[in-house]
Design a protein around this nucleic acid. Structure first.
Length: 1045
RNA sequence: GGGCCCGUGGCGCAGCCUGGUUAGCGCGUUCGCCUGAUAAGCGAAAGGUCCUGGGUUCGAAGCCCAGCGGGCCCA
């Protein structure tokens, strides 16, 4: 039996109930089982970082995935839906350091094992927390079998990939200048740098030229500390430079920037010489700090060198070059045979060779260097600059550049292939690949994959300490064969050594891998490849991924890189790039701003289904989502409407004992126009929703569903169908209505299942599963396919016209102040064309009923009702100057003339005889106005004009007053909280004979509608029971009711 | 400085690819209506330089160019 749904529903509780149902009946498992032999679909979950709670963005991401996967499952695909967890890396290390009270790497070194175990526990703990949060959202994934980057088999896949890179000669070790975090004491990848505003010193320094008296190279820098490592000055070979005489000595500066001396430093100057940059090549100078530092000058150092990266935008056109502290500096110096020196250690402290500065910290102690420059008379100007500067994205420390030995993947050698490979991928939106990602790849540099840290996949490279030969190990078994039992594949357990063929000892390079490498191999690591052939062989490559636009430089990129190393191709085929969640003002949500909205909060105030629908509805997925509580409320309202529809349907179906078995075999024969219409609309919406899912434009699916539920189903179909359900007798018309409503709701449950899995399950359980038909769960159902033969676009258009007529009628009523309860005598429709006329004719009965009209008149297109009076108003502004003294008489003649005839002939000029004179009336002389009689009003809409004639005939007065009274009695019944089927005795008194007469005429109707066994109507009565005075149409009505047996 | 995205009534968004009658929708506001889905529901009204300026075109919110503002990414 279909159960009547409760009127008030707590969606949160409903969701808990449904989730319990899924669990108890193993619905997820059944779904997987049912799809086992179906075509495989490989979805790969971008692993969220396992270090905290989920936020709105993570929730949006998983909801999107879940909706798409549920849809694909309902479409009959054997979908792989394994969740992933990114478990390694600095953020966890940083948190564990805090937890353990550790301040630097030295303290970690004291007990690496304890530190690693703490990191592992931290990750696993948060995986658990986040899993339960995702589950609460209704996300269906293999929560018990996730892939985790910390597992040995996963690590082995990464190792194998490194080995592939090595085999291809793409794994290199090199001294290079890398971005470095002095707090974390490790190299950082481009992707790990966050740019933010920062104020730094901005200084202009004079470098004394050797062998010239009081002559200087003028350089500019925002990193004074790098002057310690200065070994050259770079100029652009093609730029013009000048030597000028000033009170500060002779200065060499770019010609184009020489004006700065005066503008910025207030120095007057005299140009002594002008030359090209290349003429300065080889010029020797001294580091102004030379007395303080112990740098042993390499050969060729402290000379002017040439490079074309020099710009004239900022500075002086002469760039101070510290090869150990800038990638461009490094390259330029290398060409002149100047080696890099790096007087800075891992913690960003100066080393012994920095002499006086040994132990000072870079950046922090810039001021000491600035003071010394000043002491030496080398400082021309010191000020500050606010600019964007790179910071470690985990600990927010400003980065420095250091020359260090690092391991790289030679991405620059793969760039061409990368660019061609991404063209094979379907990007949604298209520009995510063709523009954004392409741009990022085009600028890509070699990928620094080594990190001088602990909690990560160990770099699987062993180097012999005697012969230097190197070996990459790809699995635990391989390692154990050489070095004996290894507990598992993290530090310190893997930091073992084994004998080299040369007799030396091979030791592991102590680095771990960049975490982006971890997730980059997920495509095969999550499948256990290469250790297992299956399911890799049947699934790979990945069919679909979806992540935020920050992953352009993140996961989209690392997967592409790793994919090329492993299999020479891009590992994914379809990518949906989504946006970020922002607050109501469009700002990033952050704890410090206090504007964070958590998914829990939304579920608490509304429900998971509402949150799900909201995020899939609010905007296009690739744009940023501005979270807005008001909009969530709108979605919540839609769910309420859906629920009300469902309550209405089940209430009456259950009252009448309707079951799907009662659906007549030849249902369409018994369908009214509105039934056929809603079935047409239903199938149209099925089509629309399927297409939206297929193209991943989920916002179109939610919007179409919203429109259908609110506009078509609730506001129109239910309104139309209501009276049919009130009929107490069995009738095929009623059964047809139930059958149609039933079908609509069943399909709606399936359409909503991917988006709102809980509510749809509840509806499905009641309407289908509980009757022992269909599947055990809506999520085991097939997604509906549209019945094209039910789609009747002509009928849909007709209904649009009919609705328009009804709405225009309401508008016209309002103009006259005629309530909808009161029938109008005539409803006259003047259609704009034949199409509209035909539509109104087709749905005549429906229009009459909904417009509450005694009669509907449809005029031929363009024709107006005879009652419309056309009035010609003479325009004195034009008549006066033209006709002078005759103007008044012309105006009078215009008024007297038949306005219709005048209107018809005016275009060519309408001749009138005024006082014997022939005048020609033109358009500018007349203004035509339309006038309706008192009792009429009109309203126009897209398909024509609607006129109502609200003349109150005897019949209308009877019906109107009767309905007014019925309505009041119903209200009173409700106030008394009477059962729907209870009988009453009713008395109505009103001090107006005529009205009493009207009501008497409708006695039977009033008694029936209000279930009154006795009904007294008079001008004067002794009332009893529940009594109330009402004012209707300005008259006082005294009504009393009393319950009777 | 470069790349990409966004800019439509007070607010949140459609429409733009494929140019064409009065630019839609929701929220909010005001005024009504309805009441056997009822601690709901419905209608109407007011409210718009479609960021700005050029161009293409018979016609531009839409296409092209430039600029401004916001976001993301990079240098």
């Amino acid at each position: 039996m279909i159960a009547p749904a409760p009127r008030n529903i707590d969606l949160k509780k409903l969701e808990e109930k449904v989730q319990k149902f899924w669990k108890e009946h193993k619905v997820y498992e059944k779904s997987k089982e049912a799809l086992r032999d179906k075509p495989a679909y490989y979805f790969l979950d971008g692993p969220p970082y396992a270090s905290g709670a989920i936020h709105l963005g993570t929730a949006w991401n998983k909801i999107m995935k879940d909706a798409i996967l549920r849809y694909l499952a309902m479409r009959g695909y054997n979908v792989r839906r394994q969740p992933g967890w990114d478990c390694h890396g600095l953020p966890i290390e940083v948190k564990v350091e805090k937890e353990m009270g550790i301040k630097n790497k030295r303290e970690i070194e004291e007990n690496v094992e304890a530190f690693i175990e703490a990191c592992r526990n931290w990750a696993l703990r948060h995986v658990e927390i986040m899993t339960s949060q995702f589950k609460r959202l209704g996300v269906w994934m293999d929560w018990d079998e996730p892939y985790m980057t910390l597992k040995d088999d996963y690590i082995e896949s990464a190792w194998w990939t490194i080995k592939r890179a090595h085999e291809k000669g793409l794994l290199t070790r090199d001294l290079r200048v890398v971005t470095w975090c002095p707090r974390c004491e490790t190299a950082l990848a481009d992707a790990e740098i966050e740019y933010a505003e920062r104020t730094d010193p901005s200084i202009y320094v004079k470098f004394p030229v050797v062998g010239a008296e009081n002559e200087y190279l003028l350089i500019w820098t925002t990193t004074p500390w790098t002057l310690v490592g200065n070994l050259a000055v770079v100029v652009h070979p093609d730029f013009d430079y000048v030597k000028v005489k000033t009170s500060q000595g002779k200065l060499i500066i770019a010609k184009e920037l020489v004006h700065l001396l005066e503008d910025k430093f207030g120095l007057s100057y005299e140009v002594l010489e002008e030359f090209k940059g290349r003429e300065l090549e080889g010029l020797q100078y001294e580091n102004p700090l030379k007395d303080y530092i112990k740098v042993e000058a390499p050969e060729n150092a402290y000379r002017v060198i040439l490079a074309d990266f020099v710009t004239l935008g900022e500075g002086t056109g002469l760039v101070h070059c510290a090869p150990g502290h800038g990638p461009e500096d490094f390259e330029a110096a290398k060409r002149y045979g100047i080696p890099a020196i790096c007087p800075v250690d891992e913690e960003g402290r100066f080393t012994e060779i920095a002499g006086k500065y040994a132990g000072y910290k870079t950046k922090k102690d810039d001021k000491v260097i600035i003071q010394d420059l000043s002491k030496k008379g080398a400082l021309l100007k010191a000020e500050h600059i606010t600019h964007r500067y790179g910071h470690c994205w985990r600990c927010k420390s400003p980065i420095i550049y250091r020359a260090t030995e690092q391991w790289f993947i030679a991405i620059t050698k793969l760039k061409e292939k990368m660019l061609s490979e991404i063209e094979r991928v379907e990007w949604i939106p298209e520009w995510a690949g063709s523009a954004r990602f392409k741009d990022w790849i085009s600028n890509a540099k070699d990928w620094t994959i080594s990190r001088q840290r602990y909690w990560g996949i160990p770099l699987p490279v062993w180097v012999c300490d005697s012969c230097g030969s190197m070996e990459v190990i790809a699995s635990k078994a391989e390692l154990e064969a050489k070095a004996g039992k290894v507990k598992e594949l993290h530090r310190p357990y893997v930091d073992v050594s084994f004998a080299c063929e040369c007799g030396g000892e091979k030791r592991r390079v102590s680095d771990v891998l960049d975490v982006w490498f971890d997730s980059g191999v997920a495509g095969w690591a999550s499948l256990g490849y290469p250790a297992k052939e299956e399911p890799f062989r049947s699934l790979y490559p990945v069919d679909f991924i979806t992540e935020g636009h920050d992953q352009t430089r993140g996961w989209f990129y690392s997967q592409l890189g790793c994919g090329l190393l492993a299999f020479d191709e891009v590992p994914y085929r379809r990518v949906l790039m989504h946006g970020f969640t922002l607050d109501e003002k469009g700002e990033k949500m952050s704890k410090s701003l206090g504007n964070v909205v958590t998914p829990e909060e939304v579920i608490e105030r509304f429900s998971a289904d509402i949150l799900r629908f909201y995020v899939l509805w609010a905007n296009k997925p690739w744009e940023d989502l501005r979270f807005n509580w008001e909009e969530v409320k709108v979605v919540s309202k839609m769910f309420n409407i859906l629920w009300n529809v469902y309550v209405f349907a089940t209430t009456y179906m259950s009252l009448d004992g309707f079951t799907p078995e009662k659906v007549p075999p030849n249902l369409r024969k018994h369908c009214r126009s509105e039934d056929k219409w809603i079935l047409s609309k239903l199938n149209s919406v099925i089509k629309e929703v399927s297409e939206a899912f297929d193209t991943l434009h989920l916002y179109k699916a939610t919007r179409a569903l919203n429109e259908f539920i609110v506009e078509d189903l609730s506001r129109w179909y239910i309104t139309l169908v209501r009276p049919r359900t009130w009929v107490e007798k069995e009738s095929i018309d009623k059964i047809a209505a139930y059958s149609v409503l039933y079908r609509v709701l069943c399909h709606l449950a399936k359409l909503l299942a991917p988006i709102a899995p809980h509510v749809s399950e509840e509806i499905y359980q009641n309407l289908v599963a509980s009757l022992g038909i269909g599947e055990d769960s809506v999520h085991l159902e097939k997604f509906p396919s549209p019945h094209e033969e039910y789609i009747d676009k002509e009928l849909e258009e007709d209904m649009l016209v009919a609705r328009g007529v009804v709405e225009a009628t309401a508008s016209a009523r309002e103009k006259l102040g005629v309530k909808r309860r009161w029938p109008v005598l005539r409803l006259i429709f003047s259609p704009i064309d034949d199409r509209a006329a035909k539509a109104a004719k087709h749905l005549e009965e429906l229009i009459k009923r909904q417009g509450n009209a005694m009669e509907l008149v449809i005029l031929p297109p363009g024709e107006e009702p005879a009652e419309v009076e056309l009035v010609a108003e003479p325009n004195f502004a034009t008549l006066g100057p033209e006709f002078k003294g005759l103007a008044k008489d012309v105006a009078e003649a215009i008024r007297r003339e038949d306005a219709r005839k005048l209107h018809a002939g005016i275009e060519k000029g309408y001749p009138l005889t005024v006082k014997g004179e022939e005048v020609l009336i033109k358009e500018k002389h007349v203004e035509f106005k339309k006038r309706l009689p008192e009792n009429m009003a009109s309203a126009s809409f897209d398909h024509g004009v609607v006129y109502i004639d609200a003349t109150k005939t005897r019949e209308i007065l009877e019906l109107g007053y009767a309905r007014e009274v019925v309505r009041r009695i119903q209200e009173m019944r409700k106030e008394l909280d009477l059962a729907v089927e209870a009988y009453i005795s009713t008395k109505v008194s009103v001090g107006d004979e005529e009205i009493v007469d009207y009501l008497e005429a409708q006695r039977e109707y009033i008694a029936r509608e209000t279930r009154s066994k006795q009904l007294e109507i008079a001008t004067q009565l002794t009332h009893e029971g529940y009594e109330k005075v009402w004012k209707i149409e300005g008259k006082e009505f005294r009504i009393s009711i009393r319950e009777v047996e």
